[in-house]
Write a protein that binds this DNA or RNA. Structure first.
Lengths: 136, 136
DNA sequence: ATTAATTCATACCTAAACAGTATGATTTGA
DNA sequence: TCAAATCATACTGTTTAGGTATGAATTAAT
């Protein structure tokens, strides 16, 4: 169960697209420059966001990336789920192998802890972050 | 921000000690056998629990490990804090270096997410796990 | 049609951390 | 003295995060 810079970079990227995408798709190079993150690395991350259906892209000159749905309908939780492997978020998937010696006696709390975290992340949309940003 | 097998192993270990420690300190070898985890690895983990003041030990024949305080006053959160590096639980420590380009615009949510997780873990004591175990 | 801007695809690299092992010194009760 | 145990230190293998490199495919503008 973990959240790494992948999720954090990706969230900043999505927020950047939300902020600068009014006049058309936003190229990776712009995001990389504004955010100070490697262009190639962002390409890799955005690929995961595309697979998860959060971002749409257009190739060629004038191309770039855009949100696949309104900022109010993309949550931080969506982004985390897209970037982090499931395994790392749920330590044990009820495999039935660990009935002995209390191995599963503690299992519930890790699932509950992960759930508490995801609930919090699902309660925050990109629109909320936009509002925060503009409110400052 | 992460929780690894270290925390999960350590929690099982503490629970094992709580369950089997009524008649004196519990040796690592017993725990390792019951839990099916490497003896030497558990030694390493318990060292962290000792440093955190959760466990006390006695050397020599008849020695072993015991809870440093009642099971009701040791939480899963205590164990996690003892085992995982702080850095991995709090992604950014308000260093003041990242004022530009929305780097900090998203910071709050990671701190809140980590807090939600730790709140949940702090709400569960070893005694609670013991009760669950005996209730089954 | 060519060019330049862009995404898309693949493969590779490095450092750090997890997870585990090995060896042996030290303490202590019987 | 012996054996059971913790304590200390160092080493190893594997995975992953984080990042780089190269180049192909697509597209708008000239």
């Amino acid at each position: 169960m973990r959240i790494t810079t992948k999720s954090r970079y990706a969230t900043r990227m999505v927020l950047d697209i939300a902020l600068h995408g009014q006049k058309g798709p936003v190229p990776i190079s712009d995001i990389a420059q504004r955010q100070g993150i490697s262009e190639k690395y962002l390409e890799k991350l955005i690929n995961e966001l595309k697979k998860a259906g959060l971002i749409t892209s257009r190739r060629g000159v004038g191309g770039g990336h855009a949100l696949a749905r309104p900022a109010s309908r993309i949550t931080a939780g969506d982004i985390v789920r897209a970037l982090e492997k499931n395994e790392t978020l749920a330590p044990c998937s009820d495999c039935g192998e660990c009935t002995a010696a209390g191995q599963c006696m503690t299992r519930g709390i890790w699932i509950e802890a992960a759930q508490a975290m995801m609930d919090k992340l699902d309660s925050v949309s990109i629109q909320d972050l936009l509002n925060d940003a503009r409110g400052q």
